[in-house]
Write a protein that binds this DNA or RNA. Structure first.
Lengths: 198, 198
DNA sequence: TACTTTCTAGAATAGGATTCTAAATGCCAA
DNA sequence: TTGGCATTTAGAATCCTATTCTAGAAAGTA
């Protein structure tokens, strides 16, 4: 690996890490670019060189998080053996990623709206479409085989993910005593009752 | 009603309305206080007099929306005749309020995180505790009578509301073809399957 | 080594939130 | 009705911070 790239990547990574710490502590709008510089050792110019602007830093963090999570989810769901296994994979990989990266997850939930109003909105929407399509492909065969109820597609995500999503958000906000990991089975079961055919 | 108060209230109302329009169009951070002034006819001083700062305006809008929605929900749930009726009331009043006030609802979802990092966080959290408690009181008798499954309390909200909540968010973001009103029964049924005892 | 591209620094600029002072308005008591 | 007090409004001045800009350092290339 060439030295320049590696130094450059290090800087990028340091900036992202410092930014996540700052966003976590102060929130997106209250963290200043200066804080990010102090936390990362980078200069203002460097931050702008790599990310364009403050929202650019947030966007990179956001995108990268979604990708990382989705890749894990996809791998797991693909490996599942039956319909219920796919559902379980979706829910459990969500629980795992968010509990392993609570700050990152909290950040993503917090800024989703801001992202969708930023310049990057289009790009993010496109990437999201891809992921939705991939999900559709994961479910389709099981729907055809009658193991999952036939429903308007846009209902699957809410019915399957809605409860965990809501619970995880509450947990990340500190409004919940027990961690999501303790209710895996409850959420899988609820999802299965909602969309499974049995 | 004294004239002064009424003029003052009018101004408050005008500012809030203009602010919601601006927030809807540009997002919280991109709307300037000047936009709010132009949209409402109020001066900078007036806005600051009534709301303290820009986030203060957003906070008022946020609080007022939650209250309005909760009052409707509570009235409806109280009037319900059985356990399933309570569940249905929770879900349907949520659907109704959000579809009747889409901009307001979209705003509330978008800024929840910002609110929780503002000065008003404590106050908002306290108000929320009240509402959660009221919900608990609504469900408790039916749990005791065995019509609703006994579960850790913090699971009810996700299991009951999670799916609609997720769907409504998607709909408000334009990611959904059909309105939530068309799936009332689906969501009530899913909630009932998740927590009902039958 | 000379030349090009990428990256970093940090000072200068610009935009907008917030503060501040003065004035207008409304209320109340005499 | 008037004078005094509290509330509300105006808008200019201030301050903070995102962003831009220019110069120079570092790395890559031939």
């Amino acid at each position: 690996m060439p030295k320049r790239q590696s130094r450059s990547n290090d800087r990028r990574r340091d900036i992202l890490q410092a930014a996540l710490r700052a966003f976590t502590e102060h929130g997106l709008s209250a963290t200043t670019v200066e804080m990010i510089c102090e936390g990362s050792g980078a200069s203002v110019g460097s931050v702008y060189h790599h990310f364009g602007n403050k929202i650019g830093v947030a966007t990179a963090l956001y995108q990268q998080g979604l990708e990382e999570h989705f890749d894990a989810l996809h791998a797991r769901a693909t490996a599942a053996e039956d319909a219920r296994g796919v559902i379980a994979a979706l829910i459990e990989s969500f629980i795992d990623w968010t509990t392993e990266n609570p700050d990152w997850a909290r950040f993503i939930f917090a800024v989703r709206a801001d992202m969708m109003q930023s310049e990057a909105a289009e790009k993010l929407t496109a990437a999201n479409k891809e992921r939705v399509k991939a999900l559709r492909d994961l479910l389709a065969p099981h729907v055809e085989q009658g193991h999952i109820r036939q429903l308007p597609f846009e209902l699957y995500q809410p019915l399957i993910h809605g409860p965990v999503l809501t619970y995880v958000r509450a947990w990340l906000a500190g409004r919940t005593a027990s961690a999501p990991t303790e209710h895996r089975e409850t959420f899988v079961q609820a999802a299965w009752r909602a969309v499974g055919n049995e």
